[in-house]
Computed example of a mutant assay.
Amino acid sequence: KINCECRKPNTGLFIKAKKEMDIDLNESWMIGDSTSDILAANNLGMKNILINTGLAGRDYKYAIAPDYVFFDLKSAIDWIITDHPILKIKAESFLQKIENKRFIFIGGLARSGKSTWAQILKESLSAKNNNDVHKISLDSWLIPKKDRTEGNIFNRFNMKNINNFIKRVSNQNKKDITIDLPYYDRINRDYSPKSIRYTIKPKDTLIIEGVPALCLDDKDLNKFNFFVEYPENLRKERMMIDYQWRNTQKSDFENLYNERLSDEIPFIHKSKSKADLVL
């Protein structure tokens, strides 16, 4: 392979296409299966989608998180054409409630759409805000499967370290904070080889999404809490597709789902009472 501006994550071919076909890259989307695809889009300010086919982002060549993740190409295209415009309008309807908040927490059950809403809100706030907006997944604090102890949802996350991170940012003075957060590999159920670096300025906005996002120590924070709901039959279907992708047998999935009914759902439903808005 030659080192060429035409090879992703270099942007040569994108720039050429922009000139020859009069493409507005800021209004364009990149759909890909590798970190090279996602980094190329990010370098150009393009919205991007990682699909769970081919490499599924597990090449780990570059430390980059995608805007969105979908199971396949059809799902990604449906999102771009139909769902994204609808949710973008909905997000802008309550933008005034969140535009001056330092922290935006998005909680809800697994596979309910939290990360999707986090990115939608990031796009809307970034278009209106002079400061940076960071989308941070609590999956960065998931405990690797091999190191977990028996218990409920809170035994799967390092809750102490999450709260320490929130406290550190909330007490931030005039100095930037730089932190490297691991990217969780959902197939290996362990951290990937590369970490993603965030540089957080004192006036930046943090959108923090994850199952226990409304279960954190958030007293006295300048925050807004969202809770995301999704019909249970459709959520279970999403979970099943996800675990099939992870090579989980159907019987094993049913056992896992039944475990979640007792060790996750009651605790997360209880956190809904802290929500300022239910999506």
Rank of each mutant, 00 (worst) to 15 (best):
L13I: 12
L181K: 05
N161H: 12
L216F: 12
L87P: 01
I120W: 03
L109P: 01
R102L: 01
I187K: 15
N10V: 00
L25H: 10
S195L: 00
Q119N: 14
C215S: 15
Q249V: 00
K160T: 13
S271M: 02
Y184C: 06
N52K: 15
I179W: 07
I241Y: 13
F70M: 09
G107Q: 07
F71A: 11
Y68N: 05
K90V: 04
S28K: 06
I207V: 11
I98Y: 05
S115A: 08
L277T: 04
N155S: 14
P202V: 00
D78L: 09
I268T: 06
F165V: 02
Y62T: 00
T149G: 13
D204M: 05
S140F: 04
N163W: 05
W29Y: 14
I162T: 10
I136E: 09
I104L: 11
N222K: 11
R197T: 15
K194A: 03
V228F: 05
K274G: 00
L256Y: 15
N26P: 01
I89R: 15
C6F: 08
N161E: 15
L256Q: 09
L234W: 03
F105Y: 10
N163G: 08
S271T: 13
S75N: 12
Y60N: 13
I2Y: 12
C215W: 02
D67F: 02
E20G: 04
V228N: 06
D220P: 00
S124Y: 01
K160G: 00
M159S: 09
K16Y: 13
K122Q: 14
R168G: 00
S273M: 08
E254I: 13
N3F: 13
W79H: 15
M240K: 15
P212L: 01
P193N: 08
P144Y: 05
L221S: 03
P182V: 04
N164P: 01
K194C: 01
G108H: 09
E259N: 14
S36K: 12
K101V: 04
Y191P: 10
K61E: 12
F165I: 04
K194S: 03
K174L: 09
M239W: 07
I38E: 01
E92H: 12
T178D: 05
I153L: 12
Y198S: 05
Y68A: 00
F103G: 03
K101Y: 03
G113A: 06
K88S: 13
A127P: 01
K270L: 06
